[in-house]
Amino acid sequence: MTVPDLAPDAVGDTERPVEPEWPKRLRWILILVIGLPYIWGLLGLELSWGALGRAPGQIWGLMGGLLPPDWSDIAESFNKLLESIYVAWIASIIGAFFSFPLGFMAATNMAPNWMTGPVRALLSGIRAFPELVLAIVLIPAFGLGPFTGVLAIGIHSIGTLGKLTSEVIEGVDPGPIEAIKATGGTRFQAMRFGVVPQAMPNILAYWLYRFEINIRASAVLGMIGAGGIGAEIVGRLRFRDDWPKAGAALIITIVVVLIIDAISAGIRRRIIAGHPGTGPVSRTLGTIVGDITPPVIEIQEA
């Protein structure tokens, strides 16, 4: 029995292997592809280092104008903020309502190819328009106001939610669907009992997440006069005397948005991860109120 000659050249070959050429070339190509447009971009930007040097002072001045906040008109600002939240809510509902069937139609494991193609194109076409641009296009027909804001944000949400929904649906376990089909279930039943229970937690979480994003978007839409807190802040920023009021409006906006984010994140975590168990609040209360026997889950024998 002979030892198989595994590396015939290994003994005599002391040369280093020749380094392949193409990574080097690729590097140069990359540098050209990225560097040239970068330089081209820099040339047209009207850079001024002097202005950049003065920037911290200017920002400080801006902040000084906003602070200390003037809380006298806070009730009106709060109502405007609520309006922004309502706009975001309705837009999210519109987005959720229409994106759900579209998500099914765009998922490759649910719909035939002739359907997924156009639906996907439609969704990415919608996503190509930022909310602000969409709102401007809608103004000539629907005028300025919350209605336009709702439509613009709602349509944009359909695009993003539709894509996310279809991705979730494509990721479900095919087992239950096959099982339902094997027992004679229809296509609709397979969707209802095989796909929806699996996909719904994630889809719900995306809906909530979209609501968080939409609040920000509706605040921004106020800038072009589509109602809400954005118009309030921009209007206040026009006159230097009103700046402290704008500061107050900004502060409550940030605080409320952060609170809603926290609540929504909590709900999303609860939806995805399940019941968290006994929390600190209930423990503290339990010491005051009395017994805190955790819920007994009765497992029934078959």
Partner: peptide, 21 residues
């Protein structure tokens, strides 16, 4: 957008520079 407003106020409105920042 808030970054945009900050930089526009800091280095001058109307030029693309604050947008890039």
């Amino acid at each position: 957008l808030f970054w945009g407003i900050l930089f526009a106020a800091a280095v001058g409105f109307g030029s693309p520079f604050p947008g890039a920042l």
